[in-house]
Design a protein around this nucleic acid. Structure first.
Lengths: 245, 245
DNA sequence: AGCGGCTAATTGTCTATACAATAAAGTCCC
DNA sequence: GGGACTTTATTGTATAGACAATTAGCCGCT
């Protein structure tokens, strides 16, 4: 029983990390398949000449990464490769553009205090006419418009926003400093540019645009709602991601 | 020095978790601000009457979550709330649609072995004319088309794909079982539907569509390339996410 | 002032041990 | 056979102690 033929460590880096790599390699190579049971911590601990706590840490972290599943008394199993749960990271333009080696530009077009319009009040779960700071601005990369930002900030939660002045800096950075947030919700969709939007983005009316909507929460209250529109042809979001960490 | 006035644990659940919650609460409440230094592990261990290993685990996990930053000899600090690094999870239609309580439907339109067309060969980093399995299919929710999938599978890596038969099941599920993958890359963009695409999706020509492209890697080789097109108006991807875990 | 080396504070890891919690498997009794 | 109880393998957590690795800060020298 327990044919634990040589799982071998490579001697590079911390032991728990070596164990993680060794187990990962076994799974990757197909030697251990989804549903297979691994040797128990006690067995591994002995066969690897490591403390059980060290083995435990390795297996625990692999479990957090979704590579393993563990059940008390039953054992540790190779996880079924679940959803290719891919993630798309959504980044702040003011940071992403310089990171790509392009010149970042910002232009503020609107910065005013207004009562909440119907649709916005609903999206922000606020009573009709609640006071909001409304900002409209453009982000450019090497002079080309890559994002049109429409932003509403809940003045009941962040009264300072009314006097922050978004002429020089976008609301993104300011909010990051001013507002701790607990949760965010994103929606991605595609729309045809209407005449007004087309003019602002400098694209033909009807052109496809990528829209990212973001609601940021403080507990159950919506702190801010943003609608970020990108010319579809001109801008794409790319993210590379690996499951193992 | 070190005014560690009462960080208090609540007695619910594991100690390391209590510590995580207590520290998180401090940061959330603003009592500890970005850049502030926390008491050392030794101090916390004493003031909380917990072993240093336990404190270490709590702080380590919070560091992995990006809430803290740690430097040897310097100490543990509250992290600058970095990018509101928002994540959009990309899900498999065959799973996502039933999860939303809608009836999932699948229809295969093409399932053939072909030499790689120019653009695809380039995207998959393959020589021109390499053998690929080409699948085109539709995913519906309550009868409405929500995704048009164009899929190319590298037969050099997965020869079984030629005889898998994608008439009943989409390539997504099959690939999940057949192909271990190490990395994936996603690109999101928006396009105007051309005549052909409009017909297939059942939308007006020129309608905005959301396009998700996915390349899945095995090491440096591209296993499969997928182009998933969604009618922009009819479908949006939403994801809620919180930074603390 | 600047450079180099020493000291010590702090995190990072590993170990051995202990006990708690869980749940699979077995046992007994009807 | 099946339900209730007991056993026991396995993971989950906590602890104390040790040493390694890193590096900020200090001291001394030039």
């Amino acid at each position: 029983m327990s044919q634990i033929e040589g799982i071998e460590l490579d001697g590079h880096g911390p032991v728990y990390d070596q164990i993680k790599r060794a187990v990962t390699a076994r799974i990757r190579s197909g030697a251990w398949k989804p549903g297979d049971r691994l040797p128990s911590e006690a067995e591994l601990s002995q066969s690897l000449a490591a403390a059980r706590m060290t083995v435990n840490r390795a297996l625990r972290e692999l479990t957090e990464d979704g590579l393993l599943v563990r059940r008390r008394r039953a054992g540790t199993f190779v996880a079924q490769p679940d959803a290719p749960a891919a993630l798309l990271k959504i980044v702040d333009m003011a940071k992403a553009i310089p990171a790509r080696g392009q010149a970042y530009g910002y232009r503020c077009e609107t910065d005013e205090t207004v009562p909440a319009p119907d649709a916005i009040a609903k999206a922000m779960r606020l009573p009709l006419g609640a006071r909001l700071q409304h900002v409209e601005c453009l982000h450019t990369a090497d002079g080309e418009i890559v994002e049109f930002e429409e932003r509403w900030i809940n003045l009941a939660l962040l009264p300072e926003a009314a006097h922050a002045g978004f002429g020089e800096e976008g609301p993104g950075g300011w909010l990051l400093r001013a507002a701790p947030w607990t949760e965010a919700e994103h929606t991605v969709s595609a729309i045809n540019a209407g005449p007004d939007l087309a003019r602002r983005l400098g694209v033909a009316p009807g052109a496809a645009c990528l829209v990212l909507e973001r609601r940021t929460f403080q507990g159950n209250d919506v702190v801010t709602y943003a609608r970020l529109t990108h010319p579809g042809a001109r801008h794409a979001m790319t993210e590379r991601f690996s499951p193992e960490t």
